[in-house]
Design a protein around this nucleic acid. Sequence first.
DNA 1: TCTGGGGTCCTAGGACCC
DNA 2: TCTGGGGTCCTAGGACCC
Length: 429
Amino acid sequence: MGPSSIAISDSANFYVSSERVFDPSLCGVPVIVLSNNDGCAVARSDEAKALGIKMGAPVHHIKDKIAAHGVRVLSSNYTLYGDMSRRVSEVYEDYSPRVEVYSIDECFLDFDGFRDREAHAKALVADVKRRAGIPVRVGIGPSKTLAKCANELAKKNPIFQSVCDLTDMSIREYLLPRVPVSDIWGVGRATTCKLQNAGVFTAAQLRGMPLKKARALGTVVLERTVAELRGEPCIAFEDVEPQRKGMAVTRSSGTPMTDFDMVMEALTAHATRAAEKLRTHGLVAGTLTAFYHTSRFKPDKPNHRASRTAKLTPMSNDTFDLVAAARRCAQAAWRGPRERNQGGFEYAKAGVMLDDLLPVAQRPLTLFEPLKNRSSELMIALDEINGRFGKKSLVLAREGFKKRTVMRQQFHSPRYTTRISDVPVIRMS
DNA sequence: TCTGGGGTCCTAGGACCC
DNA sequence: TCTGGGGTCCTAGGACCC
């Protein structure tokens, strides 16, 4: 049985807010945080949003704005954000018996049984600000979708002072006609278009759509959304983390990859990282897919997308196994003889995806497998060395020694919370 | 010059089987 | 001459999310 009152708390401009905790000079001024490779803006402060900087805007498209308004630009610092996320959810634990971590900056909270939900939420908002330094907003409702609607309303209307409660029917009657369908959780661009063509523009109108019609127009997902808008919860509260099904490590390359060895260096780095991720989660993978492709933003240049899948038998989380599989895939998909790139392709992105994941303990043994796995000790040593001396201290030679595959991260802030050497020295006088 | 990365779920359609 | 129907499993691709 799920809770009959659900809250969702989300952090405002989470990456920017995290940076501001440790660098107050970022407060009150426009700030953006960039994606990997410093490619585009993935987080913006309110001031940056006010300048018209859009989510996902390529940096080179907005460089005039950045210069003209003195926008502060930061590379993403996921170590910091991950740690701040943990601090915020620790506060949530004090305000709800059940917390579902939904994303790095959002948690669902079981809000059942609190006498004054709004006061409780406001206390939570103040406490997160005090203990973690992060501003959050809370939406409350009888289903996840209505809680999300409430959260949207709290975000967009300062009048709510960071908390909006849609549990009450009469309040829903007043507010749902004011929520556009495009703002509803689970309704994206394609569905918005279909709904509008059918004359459905608001959350209240969508709520009134017959379930069968919703299913025909969309899928079972839209049907669930309609039910949830009516206050009938269909999406479970998941406070135990479900077994993950796949994982991926993919990157755009700073410079175009023009020969097999360059592609293979990137794939080696990604397969290595993927194997590390598997080991941290105590998992093995049964399938590996390697891909590489040219840039979709250069339609005038020769275009090629390559992707191959290999079975990992036995299932594995060993760096050498994964790199070998990635190599087989890359080679099978390579156009022309290895030494030559016959199409003159400039590959812009490469990645490794893993599927059929299983906890190590449940790994099926194969007939000819040695009882003691030689490689696991090697992998433990590898992880320990890289843990102690820093990422990529020890890598496979295949990854290459040249700096060409290193990510561009020009504006990286210090790892304030996880590296003692990064903590700024404060001089007392 | 320079355009992110990592997930989940659903559906349709093909292959295969009896 | 007549040329089924129903089930499962798998995969690719779409849509959506943050």
